[in-house]
Simulated scan of single mutants.
Amino acid sequence: MHLADEFQSLLTELSDLDHNIINALSVDEINTEEIAALVDKREQLLLSVQSLLDETPQFTLTEQWRSAIHLTQRVVTMLEEKTKAIGLSLQKLRHGNRSVQQYKKFL
């Protein structure tokens, strides 16, 4: 396969994975195992992309690469937001548990 075709194919696969990650993060109750598996698969794919970029640095100048970078930034932002929201929920849960323990003292 020609390098440009292989690069395009990898970026298409990367885009599909990113959309799957975005969809997995968009539901109310996230499946952490599914997201972890998708992120692991994405990491392996990025190693292949990086190998091609090392071989042919001019690929970084393509519109497809810029689009992949933009989508990556979107995924990272969503992951950060979801992580922060889960952290806040956990904080509230812990506070609630402490309140319950205080009330149990009166029983």
Rank of each mutant, 00 (worst) to 15 (best):
L25W: 03
E81L: 03
N23Q: 15
P57E: 02
A37H: 13
T32E: 01
V75Y: 14
E81H: 06
Q50F: 04
E6S: 13
L79S: 04
V27F: 06
K82T: 14
K41S: 15
A85L: 08
K104D: 04
S99Q: 15
N20A: 11
I86F: 08
D28L: 14
L11K: 00
A24K: 09
L53Y: 07
L93E: 09
D54F: 04
L3N: 13
I35S: 09
L90P: 00
I35L: 07
Q64K: 12
S26E: 11
L17C: 05
Q73E: 15
L47A: 12
L25D: 03
A85I: 01
Q64C: 05
A24D: 03
G96H: 09
I69S: 02
N23C: 13
Q91H: 10
T56E: 11
M78Y: 03
T60H: 00
Q101M: 11
A85C: 01
L79Q: 02
T32S: 00
H2W: 07
I35D: 06
R98I: 04
L90M: 13
F59P: 05
E6M: 10
N31D: 15
V27Q: 09
D18P: 00
P57M: 00
S67D: 12
T12P: 01
M78E: 06
G96A: 14
D18G: 13
G96V: 10
H95D: 14
E13F: 00
M1Q: 10
Y103I: 13
T83K: 06
I35G: 10
V39Y: 02
S26F: 04
M78W: 03
L17A: 08
T56C: 05
Q101T: 03
S99D: 15
I69L: 09
L61W: 01
F59T: 04
A36Y: 14
M78P: 00
T32W: 00
F59H: 00
I69V: 12
S67N: 08
Q58G: 05
E13G: 03
I30P: 06
N97S: 07
F59L: 07
N31Q: 15
L71T: 08
F106C: 00
S51W: 07
L88K: 06
T12L: 11
L10I: 09
W65L: 02
T62K: 10
K84P: 08
E34T: 13
S89T: 10
L90I: 11
H95F: 12
Q44V: 06
L107K: 04
S26Q: 05
A24I: 05
T32K: 00
H19W: 11
V49D: 06
T77F: 08
S89V: 09
K82N: 11
N20Y: 03
N23M: 11
G96T: 14
I69M: 03
G87V: 02
N31G: 08
L90C: 04
K82S: 09
T12Y: 05
Y103G: 00
H95W: 07
Q50Y: 07
L90S: 12
D40Y: 12
Q102D: 07
E55W: 00
S15E: 14
E33Q: 13
T62Q: 04
V49N: 03
T83Y: 01
D40F: 11
E55H: 07
Y103W: 08
Q44A: 08
S51L: 09
E13N: 05
S26M: 04
K104M: 05
Q102F: 00
N31S: 15
S48E: 05
R98M: 10
M1N: 09
L10M: 11
L52Y: 03
E80P: 01
Y103P: 00
D18E: 10
I21P: 10
M1A: 15
S15T: 15
E80C: 02
